[in-house]
């Protein structure tokens, strides 16, 4: 019985588009062009005396402020405080969101019991909890961490529940046909199937964590990047405000990138549009 043209036919592999290397640097460089031009233009304008740059400090003054903060060790102290809060809040939010999301995704009874309440709570703007948290938990760390955890909880919960519910029934049936036990089904089918959506939920959660840490530090802190913002406003130091904003964006981007790097090996199998030639 002859096998087969299908086999004998030359195997065509998809060749990466030729100008790949050019693309790798052209993307970021193109993206940097606009902000760099604006920064340089503003710097020049202040230098030539068109503006004093008192309310909108030129980049050189922002960097000088950063350098000064770094020199005195203030920067490290504020960054450590903020990072610690985000880490604690993110950890708590991820833990509770994952657990409840998994339970609600897996058991429909739990979902019907739990989900309406969670959805109702989600409709409350999270900042509205602040006064209550301060009354309950005091003005110090606990209430701040709780607020961040709330921000992280909802996207993680929703992501986890949605991911479990949308696992392909046909793939689960393959697991059944191979007689996987409950734990094996979770480990070998459900977890890998859920992972892409879960990682996305973690990244959304982290973004919200960074958003909420600012709100948390606005409600009275003696250290942290949010404190630097308030301090800069009250003492009229715009350069310090911009410096804190720059650090926020660097930290946010870096932590997001860390999640991406850490999970990339687990998601290599994905046939995602953006991973190949989706970028035009």
């Amino acid at each position: 019985m002859a096998m087969t043209l299908d086999n004998a036919a030359p195997v065509t592999t998809v060749v990466a588009p030729a100008p790949r290397r050019a693309r790798l640097w052209r993307g970021p460089v193109l993206g940097l062009l606009l902000p760099l031009m604006v920064a340089f233009g503003w710097e020049t304008a202040v230098y030539l005396g068109y503006s004093t740059g008192r309310l909108v400090p030129p980049p050189s003054r922002v960097f000088a402020t950063l350098a000064e903060l770094a020199r005195t060790g203030e920067l490290a102290r504020h960054v450590a405080a903020t990072l610690g809060r985000v880490a604690a809040g993110f950890g708590l939010g991820v833990l509770s969101g994952t657990l409840l999301g998994a339970v609600a995704g897996y058991w429909s009874l739990a979902r019907r019991l739990l989900d309406p309440t969670v959805q109702a709570l989600r409709a409350i703007p999270s900042i509205a909890w602040v006064p209550l948290f301060i009354l309950w938990l005091g003005i110090f760390e606990t209430s701040k961490v709780a607020l961040i955890a709330i921000g992280v909880f909802f996207p993680v919960y929703l992501g986890m529940m949605g991911a479990i519910r949308s696992v392909d029934r046909k793939i689960v049936e393959v697991g059944r046909a191979f007689r996987l036990s409950g734990p094996a089904m979770i480990r070998r089918i459900l977890l890998p199937a859920v992972l892409p959506a879960y990682v996305l939920a973690l990244r959304v959660g982290l973004g919200l964590g960074w958003m909420f840490v600012v709100a948390a530090e606005f409600m009275g802190a003696s250290e942290g990047l949010g404190f630097l913002l308030i301090d800069g406003q009250q003492l009229g130091k715009p350069a310090q405000i911009v410096a804190a904003i720059v650090i926020f964006s660097l930290l946010g981007k870096t932590t997001d990138w860390l999640i991406e790097i850490a999970t990339a090996p687990l998601l290599r199998w994905q046939d995602a549009f953006g991973r190949h030639d989706g970028e035009i």
Binding site: K170, E173, I189, P192, W269, Q270
Partner: peptide
């Protein structure tokens, strides 16, 4: 009455696990 080790099945779709 339940999936049996001596019985295998091939579906209409390949149903491969995309992460393996």
């Amino acid at each position: 009455t339940a999936p049996h080790p001596k019985i295998g099945i091939i579906f209409q779709e390949a149903r491969l696990l995309p992460w393996l």
